[in-house]
C-alpha cells in the first residue's frame, strides 16, 4: 500500500515537473476555454440579464471542451517517446500508474479552473465564489479526470486520436455536464443545498462508479 503511494506520487511528480517546464497542458486548457467563452458571448449576446442565464452552461461547456484538449495530451509523451514500455517493465501495479496519471490530470484541471473561474466571474458579472459551487467544481473534476484518464489511454493508440477522444468521451461524461450545469444554475440563482443536492448526487454517483470501473479497465488497455 505504502509502496503504491510512492509510485503514484512519483508519476504525479514527473508529470508536474514536465508541465512546469513546458506549461503545455494548462496553457492549452486555459486559452481554449477563454476562446470558447468569447465565442459564446457572440452566440448568445452580451446583455447582463442574459449573462447570468447562460453563465453556468457557458462555463461548463467551455471547461469540458478545453479539458478534452488537455486529456489529449495526457499520454502523448508516454506514447510518442515510448516511455510507457519502460513504465510497464518496472515492477509496479497498473493501478498505481492509473492513479498517478489520473491525479496529474486532476491537478492540471484544478489549476486551470483556479485561473479560469475568477476570469469568468468578472466577464459574467456574477459572484461564483460560493462554497457549494466550489464543491461542484471539485466533484466534477474528479469524475472528469478519472474517466478521462481511461479514455485518453485508449485514444492515444488510435488513428486520428484528436477526434476519437471527444467522440468517445463526451457522450459518456454527459451526466457530469448535466449535473454540474443544473446544480450551478440553482446556486447562481441564489438557491442552497436543497436545490443543488440532486445534481451533486448525480455527480457523486458518477465519480464513485468511475473510480471503481476505470482502474479495472485501465489494466486491460495497457497490458500489451
Amino acid at each position: 500500500m505504502k509502496r503504491s503511494l510512492v509510485v503514484v506520487r512519483t508519476i504525479l511528480w514527473k508529470d508536474l515537473l514536465l508541465e512546469l517546464k513546458s506549461k503545455d497542458v494548462i496553457i492549452s486548457i486555459v486559452s481554449f476555454a477563454m476562446l470558447a467563452l468569447v465565442i459564446f458571448n457572440f452566440a448568445f449576446g452580451s446583455s447582463s440579464q442574459l449573462a447570468s442565464l447562460i453563465a453556468p452552461g457557458a462555463i461548463w461547456v467551455s471547461i469540458t471542451f478545453a479539458g478534452v484538449i488537455g486529456l489529449n495530451r495526457l499520454f502523448v509523451i508516454e506514447h510518442d517517446q515510448g516511455s510507457i514500455i519502460g513504465l510497464l517493465l518496472t515492477p509496479v501495479s497498473r493501478d498505481s500508474i492509473y492513479f498517478g496519471k489520473m491525479l496529474s490530470m486532476f491537478v492540471f484541471l484544478t489549476i486551470s479552473e483556479i485561473i479560469l473561474l475568477p476570469i469568468y466571474a468578472i466577464l459574467f458579472n456574477t459572484s461564483i465564489i460560493h462554497p457549494l459551487f466550489l464543491l461542484i467544481v471539485a466533484l466534477g473534476t474528479i469524475g472528469f479526470a478519472s474517466l478521462g484518464t481511461l479514455f485518453s489511454a485508449m485514444a492515444v493508440n488510435t488513428r486520428s486520436r484528436e477526434i476519437m477522444l471527444p467522440v468517445m468521451f463526451l457522450p459518456i461524461v454527459m451526466p457530469i455536464l448535466i449535473g454540474s450545469v443544473v446544480a450551478s444554475a440553482n446556486i447562481l440563482d441564489g438557491g442552497g443545498w436543497s436545490d443543488a443536492s440532486r445534481g451533486i448526487h448525480i455527480i457523486i454517483v458518477f465519480d464513485v462508479l468511475s473510480l471503481i470501473v476505470s482502474p479495472l479497465l485501465f489494466e486491460q488497455i495497457i497490458q500489451e
Binding site: 485508449m154 488513428r159 451526466p175 488497455i221
Partner: peptide, 30 residues
C-alpha cells in the same frame, strides 16, 4: 468508429469492449 480507428483488430476488440461496458453502465446515469 473506435473499431475502425484502432491500430490492430485485437486492440480494436479490446478497446471496443471497454467502451461497450462503460457505455452501458453510463446509460442509467444519463
Amino acid at each position: 468508429m473506435l473499431r475502425s480507428y484502432a491500430p490492430s483488430p485485437e486492440q480494436g476488440a479490446k478497446y471496443a469492449a471497454i467502451l461497450g461496458i462503460v457505455g452501458f453502465l453510463d446509460v442509467p446515469i444519463v
